[in-house]
């Protein structure tokens, strides 16, 4: 046990997203949907009931034309590294969502989830979506479902997993290749897709990794740091107005 209240390995998978490069094109989100068998409905315009693991928030600087500026903030699950528990794993009554202390990924077991939605209430990032309907696909499109990620059933919560099936594959490959599985690296679908390469992914505890370096960049910040949720998703921006939107402030 470390002082953080849980056994800590030397792997903490995390992400850095450069908001100055992000154009809000949605490639990350679309790639995520394809990779993770995310269901869709004919009408997706009600964003409060639209399942999205990688939601793209539009930020603006609240100024008038022509000083008005927008920016985009892609929001995966933050995989909070708060001491003892993430906000969501703390409250799940059935241990359906837990944090894998080997790598810091917050997982969610769909067949165990009872759909109480307490985790959604606990999460300030709205990173979790609920299956309000039975997920259905137009018939031919069931052919494009990936066997690596199980489709969900209605009445359960789902969210970004940092594509941990890809991580398992990378580890398995390392094991077969005779290299250290703990040094296995991979990219989630969103990071692979990003056309401006704004998303960097890796082990935050590996000093030499790009993600570790960027997370210590002077431009780096996290969303809602004041709440001590300790997200493992960092953002980069040079622009003050964007940085100021990361956390509430009294001024």
């Amino acid at each position: 046990m470390s002082e953080k209240g849980h056994a800590q390995s030397n792997i903490r998978l995390g992400m850095v997203i450069d908001l100055d490069k992000c154009t809000g094109c949605g490639a990350c989100s679309a790639a995520c949907q394809a990779e993770n068998n995310i269901s869709f409905r004919p009408d997706e315009s009600n964003k409060l009931r639209s399942i999205s693991w990688m939601y793209i928030y539009q930020l603006d600087n609240k100024k008038d034309y022509p000083d008005y500026k927008i920016a985009y903030l892609p929001r995966p699950c933050m995989h909070c590294d708060a001491d003892h528990h993430s906000p969501c794993t703390f409250v799940c009554p059935v241990n359906a969502t837990t944090r894998d202390e080997n790598n810091g990924i917050v997982t969610h077991i769909y067949p165990r989830c009872i759909g109480c939605r307490y985790c959604m209430v606990a999460c300030p990032y709205h990173a979790r979506s609920f299956n309000w309907w039975d997920p259905t696909w137009p018939k031919p499109m069931t052919s494009m479902l990936s066997p690596e990620v199980s489709p969900r059933m209605r009445g359960v919560v789902e969210k970004c997993t940092f594509c941990h099936h890809r991580y398992n594959k990378a580890r398995a490959k390392a094991y077969v290749d005779g290299t250290d599985p703990n040094k296995a690296t991979y990219n989630p679908a969103c990071a692979d897709a990003c056309p401006t390469k704004a998303i960097t992914f890796g082990n935050l505890l590996d000093e030499k990794s790009e993600v570790a370096k960027l997370s210590k960049d002077p431009r780096a910040f996290r969303v809602l740091e004041k709440l001590q949720t300790k997200p493992k998703v960092y953002y980069l921006s040079k622009q003050d107005w964007i940085r100021n939107l990361a956390d509430n402030s009294l001024t």
């Binding site: 949907q33 494009m144 692979d192 897709a193």
Partner: peptide, 28 residues
């Protein structure tokens, strides 16, 4: 099941856009 970018290509260097990422929805 998935369309990804080809890292060997010098134009997109492994990335895809939203349209290409969902290209299979045209196929199926």
């Amino acid at each position: 099941i998935l369309i990804e970018g080809n890292p060997a290509n010098p134009v997109n260097e492994g990335s895809v856009c939203a349209l290409a990422a969902s290209a299979l929805q045209f196929l199926y």
